[in-house]
Structures are given as C-alpha cells and as structure tokens.
Computed example of a mutant assay.
Amino acid sequence: MGREEILNSVRKNKPELLPLPEINADLFNEDIDLLSGFKEKVPLVGGTIKQLTSPKDIDNEITMMYPNATNIVNRTQVSSLGTVSISDKTQPKDLEDVDLAILRGTFGVAENGAIWISEEQFYIRALPFITNDLLIILDKKDICQNLHEAYELISKRKRTFGLFISGPSKTADIEQCLVIGAQGALSLTVLLI
C-alpha cells in the first residue's frame, strides 16, 4: 500500500466523534492553600523550588545555583542574565550547548506541580528540552488549584504551542531504571516571586 492509500483508508474508517463529557469542575474544588500545595508538589516530581522575598534577588540566586552555567538563554524581563540570544529565526540545533534556559511561567497547578509555559515566551519549541537545566520564574499569585481550572485558563489563550512542565525529564521504562534527563532538561528549578 502506498501512502495515499493508507491515508484514504484511515479517513474512511475513522470512528464517530463523541461529544466531550460535561464535567462539573466545582466538584473538584477544595479549600486549600494553593501556594503551599504547589510548593509541596514540585519536589515530589523531581523539581526544586525556591521562594524569593524580592525580585531583586533573582540574578544573585540563579548565579549561586548555577555557578558553572556559561551559555544561558534568558527569555524573561526580570533577570539580566543571558549570554545566548535567540529569535524566531534561531534553529534548534544552534542551542545544543545551552547550559541554562530561564523562562517565565504563565501559571502553576497546585494539584501536581506543573507549570504552563507558552511558545510566546521562548520562540524555539526545543528550548525547554535541549537545555541542560531549566529554570522557570513564576509569580506566586499565579497558581490555580487543579487541571480542570488550568484547562479553562488555557482555553482562552491565543492558539500557539504551549505545554505543562512538571519536574525534570525522566523515564524508568528501560530495565526499570530511573533516568533523569532522558528526553529533556536534567533539572527543573522554580523560582517563586
């Protein structure tokens, strides 16, 4: 079978579309401290979290945490660190030597420690995965309770690429041995401001 024959066969045999179920998201709301819940979940998924008292401390904190980082991509306005410039013309292969990527998170999810980041903040889709270490700066007031609320928030966005990041890349499917950094960053640090 050729490519077109296969695609035509798939088109002819697609299952009937079913409507999404109606979910009452109010049933999942809990009276919890969102910040505490988020701070508890990030380490559970392998990330590190630090809360700063002032945005003025960001560069100093990053320099102390990553003293050997020389190739740094910074896509935030709150940090002045950055040695590698990127644009929408940058090719992913040009980022293979990035030690640290500093990105701004849109919001966090208390339920699982995930952070939503969007392509509008980093241009190159490969950046959060190709960097050795990933640091996300997040405003502590931008935390929602659960993924029901998170999906409601992202449903109102401009339809560009975005993703939830939850901890560093990890896998344990090969010989049941945990490997950190298998498909992405070796570490994830969240700086709360």
Rank of each mutant, 00 (worst) to 15 (best):
D142E: 08
G184S: 05
T70D: 08
N71I: 12
G105N: 03
I23G: 01
A101D: 01
E111M: 09
S36I: 11
K39L: 04
L191K: 13
L35W: 05
Q121F: 15
A110T: 03
E149T: 09
V190D: 00
E119R: 09
V78L: 13
N24Q: 10
M1F: 06
P67I: 09
L163R: 12
E40C: 13
R75L: 08
F164D: 00
N112F: 04
T171I: 10
K170G: 06
K156A: 15
G37T: 13
G113W: 05
K141H: 07
V179Q: 05
E149C: 06
D142T: 10
V42F: 00
L103F: 11
S54A: 09
K158S: 07
P55W: 04
S9M: 15
D59E: 01
L127D: 00
L35C: 04
T189W: 00
P67Y: 12
I72F: 09
G2R: 14
L35K: 13
Q121A: 12
S9N: 14
N146D: 00
R11G: 05
L35G: 00
F38I: 10
V45L: 10
G108L: 14
M64P: 12
A150K: 07
S166T: 15
E152T: 13
K141N: 12
M1L: 06
G47V: 03
P21H: 12
D173F: 11
R75W: 10
S85G: 13
D57Q: 14
I62Q: 02
T63I: 15
L134Q: 00
A185I: 11
A182S: 14
E152C: 11
L188W: 06
K56T: 04
L192Y: 04
S9T: 10
T160C: 03
K50E: 01
Y151I: 11
S54Y: 02
V109L: 02
I174D: 01
V45F: 09
S166P: 03
D139Y: 05
I180M: 03
A69N: 01
L153T: 11
N132V: 11
P168V: 08
L135C: 09
